[in-house]
Computed example of a mutant assay.
Amino acid sequence: MYIKKIVVSILLLGLIGMAAFSYYVYNAVFIPNTAFNNEEAHIYIPTNADFKEVLAELHPLLKDDISFEAVANRKKYPANIKPGHYVIKKGMNNNDIVNTIRTNNTPVKVKFNNQERIENLAGHLSRQIEIDSLAILNAMIAADFLAKNDLNKQNVLSLFIPNTYEVYWNITAKGFCDKMQKEYNRFWNDSRQQKASAIGMTAGEVISLAAIVQKETAKVDERKRVAGVYINRIKRSMLLQADPTVIYAKKLTENNFDQEIKRVLYKDLEIDSPYNTYKNIGLPPGPITMPDITSIDAVLNYENHNYFYFVANVVDFGYHKFAKTFAQHNRNRQEYVRWINNQGVNR
Rank of each mutant, 00 (worst) to 15 (best):
E222Y: 03
Y26L: 00
K262A: 13
Q328D: 14
L55A: 13
K89R: 14
V299I: 06
N95I: 09
R74D: 13
V229G: 07
Y165P: 02
V226H: 07
T202V: 03
T245V: 07
F176P: 01
E130T: 02
I207K: 08
I88G: 03
K279P: 01
Q115V: 06
V156L: 06
Q259G: 11
G286L: 00
A323R: 04
N313V: 02
G17P: 01
I231D: 12
D268A: 03
I234D: 10
K82L: 10
E254Q: 09
Q259M: 13
G286Q: 01
Y336T: 00
V220I: 11
F51Q: 09
A41W: 02
I81D: 08
T245R: 05
V229L: 04
Y230F: 15
I340A: 06
G204A: 12
P46N: 11
I141R: 05
S273Q: 12
E270V: 02
D178G: 01
T164E: 10
V98Q: 05
K321C: 11
N80H: 11
I296G: 06
Q115A: 07
E260G: 05
R338K: 14
Q334K: 14
I129A: 00
V246E: 05
M290S: 10
E216Q: 13
E183V: 00
D132Q: 12
N37I: 08
I6A: 01
I212M: 15
P107V: 02
N306K: 07
K52E: 15
P60F: 05
V337W: 15
F257P: 00
L209I: 08
Y302P: 02
K63A: 08
R236D: 15
Y24A: 02
R263E: 09
G175S: 01
I247G: 04
E116S: 14
E69S: 11
S22H: 13
A70N: 07
Y44H: 08
T289A: 06
Y24W: 10
D132F: 04
T277N: 07
I231L: 12
Y2W: 09
P285R: 05
I3R: 08
I212H: 11
I31N: 15
E116D: 11
Y319G: 07
A249W: 08
Y86W: 01
K324A: 15
K267W: 14
I247C: 07
M201L: 15
N232P: 02
A139C: 11
Q115G: 03
V314Q: 06
A312H: 11
S126H: 05
E216K: 04
V337K: 13
M238E: 09
A323S: 12
V8A: 12
K111E: 13
L240V: 07
N163G: 04
P291S: 04
N342F: 15
P287M: 04
F21A: 11
H124Q: 10
F257Y: 06
F112M: 02
I3Q: 12
N306Q: 12
L157K: 06
R74H: 15
D132W: 04
E166Y: 06
N95D: 13
E303I: 10
L239K: 10
Y275H: 08
A35R: 05
L252D: 13
N93H: 05
A203V: 04
V345E: 07
A72V: 00
G123F: 09
E39R: 13
A203G: 10
